[in-house]
Design a protein around this nucleic acid. Structure first.
Lengths: 349, 349
DNA sequence: CTGTTAGCGCTTTCAG
DNA sequence: CTGAAAGCGCTAACAG
């Protein structure tokens, strides 16, 4: 049997309370006593049973996730993952809630953050819009001692405690690298369809993409970015115009959530010869991948992100360190052949 | 506060013990009583606190992992992941151990399985060699009521309770698909380097690869399989001979663990123009990917696999159902640009 | 500064 | 068939 607090108490010749004080290094223990206890801990090779500890301190951690509203499928997927995690929140002693705000709206976002601060939650996760109002609101959370992590899209030089999401420059590079290889020697420029250059993840993806394309053996023109505001109709129009204007278009990099519009435009123009690389595995991108319209999808696992955000916020709330390496979010590459299970099945890993 | 067993007992007008009997559907409860309790459970929306339950039943589950010995880096990585999981085994109430047996040795493997049965462990995870001796040993485990899962490589028509690993046919298809796209119109045959056709995962990968290559727009010859026994020296020799014999070789699919030898042979022959797709992200493949020798690596996350095996074995030992969708292991595609953190850093997801 | 005691939510004897 | 009571490993009052 593994040693317990009782064993420590016995071999150190002190009471349970004292052992507990040392373990959680709370004040009120003499140096000598502390030393005895620490010796016993080391000698017995004690490891704390976290589950039991959580059970005992029946504290709960109310955490709030602030996400953009609207029909962006990735964001709705994120929301679904938060709710799914909420089911397990039981044993994790957390209470999760979701607040949605208009997309790309810095003011509304700042207000939502202030709302969470007012409710005195124990942690905030927010899909950031990179704007000063947001930064100052994040500063207020910090001042109030409430841990805050940015999710998916980061905020430059703010007081956020941690960023949960992929390395978007690397994501862009990956897209560029695949695009270059898939196109090979085929001539023609590539188009880039984004949501908005106001969010940091989109800017970074573009940067990485251009860098990787520039390193390819075959030089290739990259057309000016089309900003579709992650709106299907708008993205479709922009893309259709582009297809009409650039008959020799060879590829499209869709780095935001405009995929539904993109696929529609490609169907309208009957252009299944174009190499398309998109982000986020959703019902739309999955279908397009299976149909051969999209060639590769880069994905960040929403489930992993949500669980990571929860772990980090809890750790911060408890004043525990975050193991950075453990919280890195991977960039998945999907092609038709390695598509995972179904859209609403979860791998829980 | 969430409802507890006490609340159920109160509203159902029974004792804790009875509630517990119903919850874990143990015998010894009258139909009427059971109904009352179930009504209360439903009414209160009770969800069991698994952590507390585990704490109370201080039962531990000894699980044994049987892995091939030798310097196969993927297998050593698997072993490392088992040990890492062992650290957390605390709160999971499991005790993990590892047994290694000579690679591709069905007799030794069968013997190890019998050994575990004799020790009366609560679960066995085994990297299978696809042979009759192994199947019968698996049958004995089944007869003894010991849950057994195959890990990484499956066993045809055996009594294994579950397979933890990737869909290897899909993995082969993915490799073929990428190889076809990367090579584009470039002429020349491709070689296949395997470990042994005696393990099922290698056979399945080959099958998927050939199928995908056959569907490519450009027809391409696939050379006879080279079986390197996952041994660096042997793989190197085979590969070198192949390079010498086939000067216009366009690509290599390494579907086993012979990557060290493969990379050495390519270096010997100064052939960095060949498109190489390999399996499993290890120190060697990572370095070769960064150097540009290998173009893509398909990976199964050893950490995920180990944790999945543990979850499944525990569930089986407890007679609980396994949520298949949750246990599916993804096939990761890595290129130079989306390589994850470091080789010994874990993402724990 | 240190110890005693009563739980957290669940399981498990052992009596009735 | 059902209930009372004791604990799992840890924390948190409250006394000393």
């Amino acid at each position: 049997m593994r040693p317990t607090v009782h064993d420590i108490a016995d071999t150190a010749g002190v009471s349970l309370a004292t052992v507990d004080r040392v373990l959680n290094d709370r004040p009120g223990v003499r140096g000598v006593t502390r030393a005895k206890v620490e010796a016993a801990i080391a000698a017995l090779g004690y490891v704390r049973d976290v589950a039991a500890a959580n059970l005992a301190k029946s504290r709960v951690y109310p955490l709030v996730f602030i996400l953009p509203e609207g029909d962006n499928p990735f964001m709705r997927g994120l929301e679904a993952e938060v709710r799914r995690a909420g089911l397990h929140s039981a044993s994790e002693r957390t209470r999760l809630s979701v607040v949605t705000v208009p997309a790309f709206d810095a003011g509304a976002l700042a207000q939502a953050i202030d709302g969470a601060i007012a409710e005195n939650v124990s942690g905030i996760a927010v899909v950031a819009v990179d704007a000063p109002e947001v930064s100052t609101a994040v500063g207020r959370a910090h001042a109030a001692g409430i841990p805050l992590v940015t999710l998916v899209s980061d905020l430059a030089g703010s007081g956020r405690d941690h960023f949960v999401g992929v390395d978007n420059i690397a994501a862009g590079r990956t897209a560029g690298s695949l695009m270059g290889r898939f196109l090979g020697g085929r001539p023609g420029p590539v188009a880039v369809l984004a949501g908005s250059m106001r969010v940091r993840d989109h800017r970074e993806r573009l940067e990485g993409f251009c860098a990787a394309m520039a390193e390819m053996p075959v030089a290739r023109a990259i057309l000016p970015v089309l900003e579709g505001q992650d709106d299907p109709a708008r993205s479709r129009v922009l893309m259709s115009e582009c297809l009409a204007a650039v008959p020799d278009l060879a590829g499209v990099y869709s780095l935001g959530a405009g995929n539904q519009g993109l696929v529609a435009a490609l169907a309208d123009g009957e252009r299944d010869d174009i190499c398309v690389i998109a982000h986020e595995l959703t019902a739309h991108t999955r279908a397009a991948l299976e149909a051969g319209t999209i060639d590769a999808v880069l994905n960040q696992d929403a489930g992993h992100e949500v669980r990571s955000a929860i772990r980090v916020l809890r750790a911060k709330a408890d004043g525990l360190p975050v193991i950075a390496a453990q919280e890195r979010i991977r960039l998945d590459i999907f092609i038709k052949d390695n598509l995972p299970a179904g859209p609403d099945e979860d791998d829980g890993n």
